[in-house]
Amino acid sequence: MTAIAVQAQQLFAHRRPKRAFFETVIRSLIILCVAIAIVLSSISVCDGHWLFAKGKLFGLWHLCAIGNNSVLKCTTSLTMANISGLNVGMSLARSMVSFAVVVAIFGLELLMVSQVCEDIGSRKKWSMGSLLILLSFLLSLSGILSFLILLRDYINFMGFTLTYWCEFTATFLFFLNGISGLHLNTITFPQNRMRKK
């Protein structure tokens, strides 16, 4: 009888406490916002045209200039802009922004798995996913700052394109959801609940 009671206690100890409805809703919203951020960042990276200034359209992949009859002529040779270090700097910027999307996808996958497979390690998966989202924020922010530093002489607030603002919004969402995910995990940790009781 004692052995059965000990086994039952061990099974009960390994069982994960049931989440509150409010916590589940917040975790679902974080996952949804991360997914939206990934879509926005992907669109921004694929299009890549971020700044229109002085008759030129500067992008991560192309440089476009207005030719005759107001037709845009684009080239992948960024050296045509006559800006020192633009080719190398833009390669670095697009690499960081692209890598941010890849890292965010892995982070989103961990967040989703932690919710679908509720086991002992699900909170660790959630924390790891949130950390990857924060890493995406740092990479994305580095890419944006590199872009702005390279084109500091051309920056015009009205010249930023919609795809630039998509990346800006995605970067903000990566930060907000990464921090929120980590904070949520700390305040809902089972030990904290036991202390409150």
Score class of each variant (00 low, 15 high):
Ala35Met: 01
Ala35His: 00
Ile36Phe: 05
Ile36Thr: 02
Ala37Trp: 01
Ile38Cys: 07
Ile38Lys: 02
Val39Ile: 10
Ser41Pro: 00
Ser41Asn: 02
Ser41Arg: 03
Ser41Glu: 01
Ser42Val: 04
Ser42Arg: 02
Ser42Lys: 05
Ser42Met: 07
Ser42Ala: 07
Ile43Pro: 00
Ile43Met: 03
Ile43Thr: 03
Ser44Leu: 04
Val45Cys: 02
Val45Ser: 01
Cys46Arg: 01
Asp47Arg: 07
Asp47Tyr: 04
Gly48Tyr: 01
Gly48Ala: 03
Gly48Leu: 05
Gly48Cys: 06
His49Ile: 05
His49Leu: 11
Trp50Met: 00
Trp50Leu: 01
Leu51Ser: 03
Leu51Gly: 03
Leu51Met: 03
Phe52Arg: 04
Phe52Trp: 06
Phe52Lys: 08
Phe52Glu: 05
Ala53Val: 00
Ala53Pro: 00
Ala53Ser: 10
Gly55Ala: 07
Gly55Ile: 07
Lys56Gly: 02
Lys56Val: 05
Lys56Pro: 00
Lys56Ile: 04
Lys56Glu: 06
Phe58Arg: 10
Gly59Asp: 08
Leu60Trp: 06
Trp61Met: 08
His62Pro: 01
His62Ile: 07
Cys64Glu: 10
Cys64Gly: 10
Ala65Leu: 14
Ala65Asp: 08
Ile66Trp: 10
Gly67Ile: 12
Gly67Gln: 13
Gly67His: 13
Asn68Ser: 13
Asn68Leu: 14
Ser70Glu: 12
Ser70Cys: 06
Leu72Gln: 15
Leu72Arg: 15
Leu72Asp: 12
Cys74Glu: 13
Cys74Trp: 09
Cys74Phe: 10
Cys74Gly: 10
Cys74Met: 12
Cys74Ile: 12
Thr75Leu: 08
Thr75Asp: 13
Thr76Cys: 08
Thr76Arg: 15
Ser77Gly: 08
Thr79Val: 11
Ala81Thr: 06
Ala81Asp: 05
Ala81Arg: 10
Ala81Ser: 11
Asn82Ala: 10
Asn82Asp: 10
Ile83Arg: 00
Ile83Glu: 02
Ile83Pro: 02
Ser84Ala: 06
Ser84Arg: 12
Ser84Gln: 13
Ser84Val: 05
Ser84Gly: 06
Ser84Tyr: 07
Leu86Pro: 00
Leu86Val: 01
Val88Lys: 08
Val88Arg: 05
Gly89Ser: 11
Gly89Leu: 10
Gly89His: 12
Gly89Lys: 11
Met90Asp: 08
Ser91Val: 07
Leu92Gly: 06
Leu92Asn: 07
Leu92Phe: 07
Leu92Ala: 14
Ala93Lys: 04
Arg94Thr: 05
Arg94Cys: 00
Arg94Asp: 03
Val97Cys: 11
Val97Arg: 09
Val97Ser: 13
Ser98Cys: 09
Ser98Pro: 04
Ser98Ile: 06
Phe99Ile: 15
Phe99Ser: 14
Phe99Gln: 07
Ala100Phe: 12
Ala100Ser: 15
Val101His: 14
Val102Thr: 14
Val102Pro: 03
Val102Tyr: 09
Val103Arg: 11
Ala104Lys: 13
Ala104Thr: 14
Ala104Val: 14
Ile105Met: 15
Phe106Cys: 15
Phe106Glu: 15
Gly107Lys: 15
Gly107Arg: 14
Leu108Glu: 15
Leu108Ile: 13
Leu108Trp: 11
